[in-house]
């Protein structure tokens, strides 16, 4: 990218880190991630012999359970960390001081993203690192690769939401509007996206939208079934939360459900489309980092300050 100056981006990120982060937020987040991992591990270990809920304490199970919680929690943390990043500088009257110094506007957006992303990433790293000691002690075969995979994907997932929040913050001079904007993002991915996907499923069931027929084997018998059209799956894959869950199977060994792969193969006549493969979910997460950033930079470079 042109007009990006690494030294400016780092200077702004450092300033932002010093200015925006109260130290208790940082340590609070680290403690929270530590507690989350330790509690989850201890719960799995405690209930391991339970006939209904019990599961063997492995890193794979830990990743599965933890990620179902972080999938919901990380976006909220990231949106809260990011929403004031740029609009807040307007509200406090310091934006002109920032831009009087030799930074391009792109530097400002990138520096802000970096500053806020580092807060989230560092607290995740500290929480995970401290918890690793306890987790490894409770667990027989601790798989470092899976554990680090969960950490790295959680950081990328979080940065995507920080990027969304910073982008919203770059679109307005009012923190009230920015706040409404990130709440809108929250609703979009927690409610609207799922609701839309469910609606598509209903529309296919009631034949308002053409589904695709396929045959599969069920308990030794061939049966005819109907699935959604490809674009509906593509749409579903773009939900960052779905992408996060999917990508964890790429980064870790979180087990796939027995037989699911076979059914999937039957649905698409043997060749699974690229967007349903796990690596595509990783691309989706990168998309949610870069696309909001691109929109924010485009707007922020053109607007009258």
């Amino acid at each position: 990218m042109t007009n990006v100056h690494p030294e400016s981006v780092v200077a702004i990120a450092r300033k932002d880190f010093q200015d925006s982060v109260r130290s208790w937020v940082f340590w609070g987040l680290s403690t929270f991630f530590f507690a989350l991992l330790v509690t989850t591990t201890a719960s799995i270990w405690y209930f391991a012999d339970d006939p209904i809920f019990g599961a063997e304490l492995t890193t794979g199970v830990l990743v599965g359970v933890t990620s179902s919680i972080t999938r919901v929690i990380i976006p909220v943390i990231a949106l809260i960390l990011g929403w004031k990043a740029i609009a807040g500088e307007w509200e406090s009257g310091s934006m002109k001081v920032l831009l009087s110094l030799p930074h391009s506007r792109k530097d400002v957006v990138l520096g802000k993203l970096l500053g806020r992303a580092v807060v989230l990433a560092l607290s995740l790293v500290i929480g995970f690192a401290l918890a690793a000691v306890v987790v490894a002690a409770l667990m027989g075969g601790f798989d470092v690769v899976d554990y680090v995979g969960l950490l790295v994907m959680s950081i990328i997932y979080g940065v995507a939401y920080v990027s969304l929040a910073v982008a919203v913050s770059a679109m307005t001079k009012s923190t009230t509007i920015a706040g409404a904007g990130v709440f809108g993002i929250f609703l979009l991915f927690y409610v609207v996206w799922n609701a839309a996907f469910n609606a598509i499923q209903l529309l296919v069931q009631f034949e308002y939208i053409d589904g695709v027929e396929y045959t599969t084997e069920f308990q030794g018998e061939e049966i005819e079934l109907l699935r959604l059209p490809d674009w509906a799956y593509l749409f579903d894959m773009f939900d960052p939360g779905t992408a996060y869950s999917n990508v964890l199977t790429l980064a870790t060994d979180a087990a796939e459900i027995e037989g699911a792969a076979q059914i999937e193969a039957d649905m698409f006549h043997g060749s699974i489309p690229f967007f349903l493969q796990d690596w595509f979910s990783f691309v989706v997460l990168l998309f949610w980092i870069l696309a909001p950033l691109a929109v924010a930079v485009y707007h922020f470079e053109r607007v009258d300050l």
Partner: peptide, 29 residues
Amino acid sequence: RQRTGVLPEGAEVWGRLTGQQHLEFAIDS
């Protein structure tokens, strides 16, 4: 702006940064 010093009108300082940190930011920038 690299060769210009600007004192903007009605600008505010960053409340949680010290005087030293403000100047270090300008010097780094």
